[in-house]
Design a protein around this nucleic acid. Sequence first.
DNA 1: TATTGTCATAGTTTTTTCTTATGATAATGT
DNA 2: ACATTATCATAAGAAAAAACTATGACAATA
Lengths: 312, 312
Amino acid sequence: MTIVQLEYIMAVDEKRSFTKAAEICHVTQPTLSMQIQKLEDELGIVIFDRYKSPLEPTKVGKIIISKARKIIREFNGIKEYLTNEKGKLSGQFRIGIIPTLAPYLVPLFLPDFVKQHPDSKLIIEELQTETIIDYLQKDRIDLGIAVTPLEEKELKEIPIFNEPIYGYVSTDHPLFKKERLSESELENAKLWLLNQGHCFRNQALKICNQNQLDTQNMEFIYESGSIETLKNMVNISSGITLIPALAAFSNINDFNMVKKFEAPEPLREVSFIVNKGYLKDNLIKELRKSIIEKIPEEYTIKYKNGRVIHWR
Amino acid sequence: MTIVQLEYIMAVDEKRSFTKAAEICHVTQPTLSMQIQKLEDELGIVIFDRYKSPLEPTKVGKIIISKARKIIREFNGIKEYLTNEKGKLSGQFRIGIIPTLAPYLVPLFLPDFVKQHPDSKLIIEELQTETIIDYLQKDRIDLGIAVTPLEEKELKEIPIFNEPIYGYVSTDHPLFKKERLSESELENAKLWLLNQGHCFRNQALKICNQNQLDTQNMEFIYESGSIETLKNMVNISSGITLIPALAAFSNINDFNMVKKFEAPEPLREVSFIVNKGYLKDNLIKELRKSIIEKIPEEYTIKYKNGRVIHWR
DNA sequence: TATTGTCATAGTTTTTTCTTATGATAATGT
DNA sequence: ACATTATCATAAGAAAAAACTATGACAATA
């Protein structure tokens, strides 16, 4: 006994004809005939009285059909439930975003998103990557936004855009006069960096081919917790640092201090992170749409000359 | 999505192990793994979290499993319902029996049967074969007992026993001195016969190779409605007739008038007649048991030298 | 009486399911 | 710490099931 067989008898019951039933089931008439016969054999009853014209279900047949109808309804109910579950964009969504992204990204998409989806409520937390991973696994957040790849097999990464990484150079710094920075020039540079735990710290070090900071030759050390602090440090110290693109133009007064790298430009891949098998595809789709709408188009298209920084 | 897949996830949920679940499903572990994967793909969700140990269903998984459990329960419910329906031997059973059998057969099995099945109530009617067929099709009776084959394709025949046919010869009749009758001797005999409509009339004619009665040469015509009348007619008229075995010994005083035929002995096949797909297998089984218990054993075993009379 | 419409049967092809063999990874015991 | 075992995934081939095309029997209809 299979679900398909039950569907067949329902079709025959509806159409009162094997031929027509086969049509609506998108199979040939012999296929349907044989399956119904098999079912009848297995159950040891006759479901349809072929001698009547138009054919009709037997007494038992009617009972079986009504039972079948119920089963099919519930069977399809599973898929319906899931599409519903995935589709609905209401309720709470707990989102964790890394600190080097959140202050610049959230203000971009959040206002419009809440306007478009009044039934949904986003709860956004600034979390470092490790915490995002932990919280996802513990179901304390639904979605993370972080830099990938993470290589966590329990999680699924859905790339959103590639964020270029720029230099931020004090007007007093020797590199300030250059149009474009090259990565090699930074290899032994004294960089202002975020403190441990921020993934952007590792990304930056990677770009400069430095595995760890050469603290020996530096005049003083100040590891900041935010990119804004970093920029301020550069400003007052004639220094240099690296900043992600979205952070670069948060203050319209320092356009000139932002220096692009020569191609291939270093990039970081920003992705949604979800548990594998996460239901709310729709949340992801909508959120993605909102974000992509607001960020520069060139971030989303595949960078021809970009170099994605794998940092883990 | 198939029922089997749902059964698999239920087994995994119960055992919390693919391997053990495969065992109780009587398949190998890869089979089960693949089917569950297929289901997960189709539904677009992950049902089991394989990273946990022991593995456990995801949040959605739990919901799907509970839905699956319900479906499986109802699915099996169909078969349960049917075995129940077929198995139960209670309620009314309407039975039609041909008149040449009923007076001799019913008293044989009925008393014991009702004793053994106090919850069932048999409603027995004497009906001629054509009426039995008609009533079965109109669902006015559940079961017929008649002589087969009928060659009615809507009906199913279940042979019970082969009833020999004997001659019943008046002591004054020339054939009375014979030990055994031969069919050829009867070819032009003047037989007492049942009137039209009784199948036994045709059976008797067939035995004598007579297609219709040669009324010309007969002294008088009296077509009887019952075998008892027939026997009486023979007694008072020095005549001869044919009677089925069960009727032969209903009166212990005329043993000597009953003459067997030479082998191959003419027989008539007595069968249950039911609608194809009739549910109550159990009724049939029990009834059959009751009947076979009471009739001579040699009727039930295949007659080596018997000649079954097809009469229709 | 020929025609059409309906379902059954036969023989093949295609698809699906299952199996065996093997591999990767995590848990467990020495 | 290292070998062992347990557990699930993957791959490739075998077996089973379901589908198709072609055809046949039969009844209803023109």
